[in-house]
Simulated assay, not measured.
Amino acid sequence: MVSTTRNLAILFADISGSTKLYELLGNDEARAIVDHCLTIAKRACEDFGGRVVKTIGDEVMAAFPTADSAAQAAIEIQTGISKQRTSRGTPVAMHIGFHSGQAIEDENDVFGDCVNVAARMTAFASAGQIFTSAHTTAELSPVLRQRTRDQDAQTLKGKERDIGLFEVIWGDAEDELTAMSPRLARTPPKVTLTHAARAIELSEERSLLTLGRDARNDVVIADRKASRMHARIERRRDKFVFIDQSSNGTWVTVEGEPEITLRREELILRGRGQISFGHAFADDPTEIVVFTCQG
């Protein structure tokens, strides 16, 4: 089969807490419940024009021609699963995510960035929830779009920009939409780093910086106690995080606070301050990085 690329909506439906089911109910009943839930999910996908690509453990992956059909299938899955109970009377739940975009179909499987983002939408969802992206929400028909609520933006690994997250409301939960208060606008994060006479600004456009003795780093630290790949600074939603990956550690001073030592640890940068590599600031104040956070 020759691979083809086209627009699809990719959906993942995963049973929540399946490991706990096996622990509480035993293998036979848990397996029967999992199989029954997967059957409900697969049938709903097919009823709304989707193709079940595969089942992965306790998860179903399906491809749909439109975002609407994926959303309708997701709602149908949650409606069906919400009626299921174990022999102990406890409810069973699934968490679902879907995302639309260009995908590669090859040998009955589907690949590409669209699939990866859909999987991340599923990971963000809790039991009983359906999550999708802002991009996909914009493709929904007005009736279905009214059933969504903004869940702010999330940072996805490998993505320069945050991805807006929306929850699809299903069942009798529409009242929750009107009860939601307006979400405050998020101030885009920025941090300015100064090393010697050079100033570097990190923001949503540039969200990663590496520091160390090696010449391949964005900021080269000329201190023999610094490691070759000493640390990195990366954006996570509306914050920038300093991540030490060195042998000797990093000393960070936030203005007005005591100096902090990091050894293979992380610190959210805030306010103003300075960073020393491999030793305390007082031991050698010449080779430092000064930071100023905004937002």
Rank of each mutant, 00 (worst) to 15 (best):
T55Y: 02
I163R: 01
T155V: 04
D150L: 05
H135T: 14
R161T: 13
A103Y: 00
A138W: 02
K83Y: 15
I75N: 01
G158E: 07
I96G: 06
A127D: 11
A118K: 01
D109F: 09
G97E: 04
I130Y: 05
G101W: 00
D109L: 06
I96T: 11
T122C: 14
S126C: 15
V60H: 07
T79F: 14
K83W: 10
R120I: 01
A70M: 08
V115K: 07
A127C: 12
G101C: 05
I130P: 01
H135F: 12
V117K: 02
S82I: 08
A71H: 04
A134R: 12
P142H: 11
V92S: 07
I130K: 00
G158V: 09
E76P: 02
K159Q: 12
S82C: 11
A125L: 00
M61A: 02
I77M: 15
A118N: 07
V110D: 05
D106E: 15
Q129R: 00
S82E: 12
Q84N: 11
Q151W: 00
A74F: 05
R88P: 01
Q154T: 13
P91F: 15
V92M: 09
A119P: 05
C114M: 10
A62D: 11
V110M: 10
I104K: 12
R161F: 13
R120C: 07
D162M: 15
T132M: 00
R161C: 10
Q151K: 06
H95M: 05
Q151F: 04
G80S: 12
A71F: 02
G80Q: 10
I75V: 07
G89W: 13
E76G: 07
Q151M: 02
A153V: 00
V92H: 08
V143P: 05
E107G: 10
H99A: 02
D113F: 06
G89H: 13
A74G: 11
E139F: 02
R88G: 15
T90E: 15
D106T: 06
T86E: 01
A62H: 11
N108G: 12
P142W: 08
A125D: 00
K159D: 03
E160S: 13
Q78F: 06
R85N: 11
E139G: 02
K54Q: 14
H99R: 05
L140E: 00
R149V: 09
I96S: 01
E160M: 14
E59F: 10
G89P: 09
I96Q: 04
T79D: 15
S126K: 13
P91G: 13
T137R: 09
K83F: 14
A70R: 02
I104H: 09
V110A: 10
E139S: 03
S87H: 13
I77K: 05
P91Y: 10
G80C: 15
A153P: 00
I96W: 01
Q129V: 03
A93E: 15
E105C: 13
R161V: 11
P142I: 09
E76A: 15
A62E: 03
L144E: 08
G57L: 02
F124A: 03
A138T: 10
L140I: 06
D109C: 12
E160Y: 14
D68L: 10
G57C: 05
I130G: 00
A125P: 00
H135M: 14
D150Y: 09
M61K: 06
